[in-house]
Write a protein that binds this DNA or RNA. Structure first.
Lengths: 144, 144
DNA sequence: TAAAATAGTCAACAACATTGACCTATCGAC
DNA sequence: GTCGATAGGTCAATGTTGTTGACTATTTTA
């Protein structure tokens, strides 16, 4: 394959990535906006849901933001009673985070929306295509 | 396949998408930060580069942001002489945008970084896998 | 027990986005 | 030539998400 054609493919892939990710986040964004929440809140809801009793620092390592950046949206979620926080027994420095019942409901709604979105794209092709997509996505965060 | 296993796959795909996109944008973000620019500037540079003489409204339609949101980063790029703007001959209401020479250089650097990133992931698998990835990415922006 | 490390919070600020209101300039149609 | 539609620019107020720096509280360690 000529270099030029390869470049065009790679450029197209950049655009596909951009538009696909934007589409992928737009439905949760819309649901969240109706509650005065944003994408940062979504990420917290998601990861607290997946890792019950996670500490603030655990969340920081996953999200790779400063703890100050986490603070405002997390406090917001606690005020709205979507997330609960308590000090750990074994070490009172640690705060443990959990989703409340309504937090779980919202997280399930957001995640379900995205699962349906992905499922629609996956189901329009075959199993091998879906597995291939995941294998590329797994490779991307690896360091060069 | 059981529903539970399918759910786990879809949940994993959500996370893969998040981490892959974050990795994909992190290198350009880093280059841009060194010049006092952000992701908004990157998108403008990219689309003006791909669509020479695009008008303001064309950019707004591609980026799906408000004109006020576009205004500040675009003005910034023009001040830094990375983008040039002039009125169209056929209709002076339209402003035409182009990359300057140094704008082209920066855009090429950013795009090249992302092309290399994708190429590294693609080259670690076979041609079919790459094509499959693009086909899923193409399907995602389609309305349900 | 005093120092150092860890976990988390508060305050000030900046980038990037929103909506709404209002302005100029240009073009096409009548 | 005036009127209405279109393209663009600007100001103000607001909100989310992020930054850095200084701070408190708790635990570990030397």
């Amino acid at each position: 394959m000529t270099d030029l054609k390869r470049q065009a493919e790679l450029r197209q892939s950049i655009e596909l990535f951009y538009f696909a990710y934007r589409a992928f986040t737009s439905r949760p964004d819309h649901i969240l906006a109706g509650q005065g929440l944003g994408r940062a809140h979504h990420r917290i809801l998601y990861f607290v849901g997946r890792h019950p009793n996670i500490a603030i620092h655990g969340l920081l390592d996953l999200l790779e933001v400063s703890k100050q950046a986490l603070n405002a949206p997390l406090r917001h979620l606690i005020e709205k009673k979507l997330v609960s926080m308590n000090s750990a027994e074994h070490d009172k420095r640690f705060k443990q985070l959990q989703l409340t019942e309504i937090g779980k409901e919202l997280e399930a709604q957001l995640t379900s929306t995205q699962m349906q979105h992905l499922a629609a794209a996956f189901d329009s092709t075959d199993r091998e295509t879906e597995i291939a997509w995941r294998s590329i996505m797994k490779a991307l965060p690896e360091k060069l």
